[in-house]
Nucleic acid binder design. Structure first.
Lengths: 109, 109
DNA sequence: ATTATTGTTCGTAACTTTGCGAACAATATA
DNA sequence: TATATTGTTCGCAAAGTTACGAACAATAAT
């Protein structure tokens, strides 16, 4: 029997972030939140071609992945980027893609 | 009825890449391919704690997403990073995360 | 106390993902 | 021709994803 390595913690985390971003609605949400001050549920919903129940579901996934957080401001809910985890994701992705720079063309100096 | 925007082509593409990377096995594969010259199926399989049928499946997904390509060198199969699409992915991710630099701490100059 | 606004949760349906072992195909070796 | 090596495909099971409308809860306004 050969010995098989387990996945590293970093790779598990990176995969978790990637998975959370693996839907155009969730990409659109993150992009929107990154460039807005007002980030109420309704504003997000207006950006997306899907029902509010589905939007709520996508927001929950982003929240579970740690990429956003929401706080209730009755009668609305304000969503924001979780900067700590967003930066963690950013760094993991940067390092991931940087490892390819040995072949590199773009973004490698 | 409100008018809802469709997803942009870029966001769809970015989501497709993110989804393809949304599993630790596939992250591990890409990382491995990025840093090796020999990239036979068997070498990849040895890195992963899963059955070869499952490895084959993950490779197929990465291939379908355009991130890798494989060529038969009987009796082996050599897998490699598809640099064109890898760089496209890299750029899409970089731009995606760069949009957050208005709040930024790290990697923003 | 109604009624309206806002967003979540429930229930359901269709589809996709992940994983495995077994069977298979294709070449190389004895 | 038999046998070994390499990797894919098949068939299946269990679990997760995506989507919706309807029902619900919580606050605010009439």
């Amino acid at each position: 029997m050969k010995k098989k390595r387990d996945y590293t913690v970093d790779n598990e985390q990176l995969a978790r972030f990637a998975k959370a971003l693996g839907h155009p609605a969730r990409i659109t949400i993150m992009e929107f939140l990154a460039n807005q001050d007002s980030c109420f549920f309704g504003d997000i919903h207006d950006e997306l071609p899907i029902a509010k129940a589905t939007v709520s579901q996508h927001l929950k996934e982003l929240k579970d992945a740690g990429l956003i957080q929401g706080e209730i401001e009755p009668p609305k809910v304000r969503y924001c980027v979780n900067m700590k985890n967003w930066n963690l994701a950013k760094n993991l992705f940067y390092d991931f893609f940087a490892s390819e720079c040995i072949h590199g063309e773009i973004h490698c100096e």
